[in-house]
Design a protein around this nucleic acid. Structure first.
Length: 284
DNA sequence: CTATGGCCCTGGTTGC
DNA sequence: TGCAACCAGGGCCATA
């Protein structure tokens, strides 16, 4: 599923094709993709605007729009599970999964989404959305000290906490599992019981894994995520735990386990990531 | 503050 | 072989 590295890759690869382009026509074939707005209103807001920049915040691809010199708000695209942004390729046959199509003064930007969970919305001002998100894991605000304090001042299991976009923005199921493995921390470990040294390891693990995944243009292990160029990423070859349950740990050899945490498949090594002592444990 | 569970969706997998 | 049931999962919302 697209997480920070996949979204970053998407933004980088479409940027040169759409920056500076003007939106001339808009086709919407699945209205709910617009997140509650009508196609007519969506069209009214963005037709005639120019795409001034393409960036990323958390798992959003962010298009800044201008009408002439005047700020015209932003388009926010969230890929969720199966969304893809694709720039025009002459060979690209019309996809049955196209939900929104922006026809530009040169080229076409398509939003494809098999499962229809993705969103492509226009906001006059994204500040309320962005302000509700935690810091960027690759940004300056995300320091080891910040994470140590963040863990200490909350009492949640590590995995759901790291998945919480209001705590830290951009991680998803895959990279959380990989980061916890690298840091040697069990996904159910309570955040306020993580020793400072381990929190520091987790901070490094998160940044290293995300940076490495961006270098490889993300992960593609099923038929869903592809770069806008149609190519798969390659970080899946470096997975240590995600999807490897039943196979041996690459570090210690023990068979990797899969459990469900917060309704999500969770992969870890019982030796490298020792279980926390549950409070309810009858004896200890 | 934290946890749980339903909901949205559809293609692929599983079970009989 | 055929078909129905089941599953995955990010974010959001209601409930406890």
């Amino acid at each position: 599923m697209p997480e920070l590295p996949e979204v970053e890759t998407t933004a980088r690869l479409i940027r040169p094709h759409v920056t500076g382009r003007t939106i001339e026509r808009v086709h919407v074939s699945w209205t709910r993709t617009l997140g509650g707005q009508s196609a007519a209103e969506f069209r009214r807001r963005i037709v005639g605007t120019r795409i001034a920049s393409v960036g990323r915040r958390a798992k959003f691809v962010v298009f800044e729009l201008r009408r002439g010199r005047v700020d015209a708000g932003v388009l926010l695209c969230h890929l969720r599970m199966t969304g893809r942004l694709v720039v025009d390729r002459p060979t690209l046959e019309p996809s049955p999964w196209e939900r929104v199509r922006l026809e530009l003064d040169r080229g076409v930007l398509r939003f494809l989404d098999v499962r229809k969970f993705g969103r492509f919305t226009h906001l006059h001002d994204p500040a309320p959305v962005f302000d509700a998100l935690g810091p960027e894991p690759l940004g300056e605000q995300f320091t080891a000290a910040w994470l140590r304090r963040g863990l200490r001042t909350r009492r949640r299991a590590l995995k759901p906490l790291l998945l919480d976009q209001t705590f830290l923005a951009g991680l998803g199921n895959i990279y959380v599992d990989e980061a916890l493995f690298r840091a040697g921390l069990h996904p159910l470990r309570r955040s306020d019981r993580v020793p400072p040294a381990a929190a520091t390891r987790l901070h490094a693990a998160i940044r290293e894994i995300l940076a490495a995944a961006i270098e490889r243009e993300g992960s593609s292990f099923d038929s869903f995520y592809r770069t806008p160029e149609g190519q798969p990423g390659s970080y899946q070859h470096l997975f240590q735990v995600y999807g490897r349950d039943g196979q041996p740990c690459r570090v210690c050899g023990r068979t990797l386990k899969r459990i469900v945490v917060s309704q999500r498949g969770t992969h870890f090594c019982t030796r490298c990531q020792p279980a926390p002592r549950p409070l309810s444990s009858p004896r200890s």
